[in-house]
Nucleic acid binder design. Sequence first.
DNA 1: ATGAAAGCGCTAACAG
DNA 2: CTGTTAGCGCTTTCAT
Lengths: 331, 331
Amino acid sequence: MATIKDVAKLAGVAVSTASYALNNSTKISMETKLRVEKAARELNYQKNGLASDLKKDKTNTIALILSDLSGPYYSELIKGVQDFATSNGYDLIACSSIGGANSTAVKFLKEKRVDGAIILAHNISDQIALESARDCFPLVVLDRKLPNDNIFHVEVDNEQGGFMATKHLIDRGHKTIAYVSGPSNSLDNNKRFAGYMRALKENGIGFQSKWKIPGDFTREGGYRATKLLIAQQDLPQGIFYANDEMAIGGLQALQENQLQVPDDISVIGFDDIQISEYVSPPLTTIAQPKYEAGALAVQLILQVLEGGKVSPSFSLPTKLVERQSVKHAGV
Amino acid sequence: MATIKDVAKLAGVAVSTASYALNNSTKISMETKLRVEKAARELNYQKNGLASDLKKDKTNTIALILSDLSGPYYSELIKGVQDFATSNGYDLIACSSIGGANSTAVKFLKEKRVDGAIILAHNISDQIALESARDCFPLVVLDRKLPNDNIFHVEVDNEQGGFMATKHLIDRGHKTIAYVSGPSNSLDNNKRFAGYMRALKENGIGFQSKWKIPGDFTREGGYRATKLLIAQQDLPQGIFYANDEMAIGGLQALQENQLQVPDDISVIGFDDIQISEYVSPPLTTIAQPKYEAGALAVQLILQVLEGGKVSPSFSLPTKLVERQSVKHAGV
DNA sequence: ATGAAAGCGCTAACAG
DNA sequence: CTGTTAGCGCTTTCAT
């Protein structure tokens, strides 16, 4: 493969001149520039990016660490990352953390191959993240919180989302509201539940443990939880499912028992996944600002890279998406 | 950031010794090795991957070029690529071709930042692919065919798949079979249609143009095509939809017209997308070996990199997935 | 406007 | 076993 040396030789100039010419420096005369470009074309020259990055001590690239490149993951979030990286002139690569300490992710986190990284991969240990972050190498974590001067954190405000969902039901006249929960070790779930509790409390509604049913974040789990709720013989006026998957399972269980949503009972979900719009009835739910989270993650990295000072942690508000699974509770 | 020089100095050895020690060379005494490792730890040393790759003239990384990191795309294919790259000790990065000639993809294709690449991105021009491939930089394209000694091609045998689908219907006693087609500029579609035609011909069934209906590869298109077929008043015994999305739209249209599948009419799709299994009735369809295609792509690159000689083109057979949308046609 | 030369951080002969 | 040294391909002072 031709190097810049070959180009310089063929053009009859020094390497430095060739470099300037190829990088559109103003100090080169038009004539030599053309000559160098011609030589480059003839030799089919392509610069070695590694060499130039090494010299410049800058890659202009950020890495997005995913737990598995084959998904599934929040595509909106990735879109946010991608859009903002690209539009700020940065390159973006995605790599997977499969393989733990030997993964591609770790290689890119540690070996100065990129200028910064965004981590969305539960299977990468806190320790590795902590070891990787350093001055001039900012890290944004989207799935945990880590105490380090070079690690920034952006999250969706699940507590506020849980509050909002519950409050919506309360505002629509519901006094009895069940909470179908995700796994108890899920931070997201616990935050949503905390929001539910706060809404209840602030509105003078007592919590009843019979109305907190585990649903495991799966469609199947939501279905079973709902069947259980029905079996309890004392139906709440509304059900807040801690995610949409469970709500969809719940919808099916309700339908099987001749319960009309929203006439007989209201249902609200969380996530605003794609099919929520298409189920019957279309699901009222809480949308997470995933795109914004991705975009913000990139912004933070770029700001740090440019020497700016940024807060270590951000919490993004959720949004209520009203569709047709909630209506005013009858008297 | 500490460099290997700093480590060497602190350990009181030469850089070369430090390098050998850190790379587990056998020629270093256990004692010095330990001393170097200790120094590295103290300095929090991490090697600069760019420098080492530059020196070694090898990155041990292959790139997967996607048209958009935020999907959607064939996750099974990516899984195949990822599994095989990882298990052969290669790193894999994904990058997007958004931005055309200025995209991250092009940067990685041209600037020797990776050892090889797999392209699954229609929005990257043939010209760029052709320019990027070179000796010692193999390229595998999954979505087109390109004449170049360093570009390899793997595809799914759509013609054979189309043949297989049609033949299945014929074997089940169907004499009249409609083809709901994708866009006429789709190569995949045309191959599937060619297979359909060959099956008809080989079994002495004449082609009737009224039974080739455009459906655009969308659910909506399949629905409309089917309505049209029904409106023609002369229903075929079976319908071969050129993809599952259309078949699902078709199923709905059939159901709306009180036509029972498979009792009144048989339906077969193509792709074996995830929901095919869950629609009613579960869809009989043609599965594409996407995982295998991804795995093969990696294998080809690795073989070329290791100096092996490989065929320029591969075509992978499809597989019939029998579910419940086809049964023997009545007399 | 152009050239000579230093050096980014690393690896790998080669010599001892 | 360890040290000296050249050099990967590029950018960037510093002279001229």
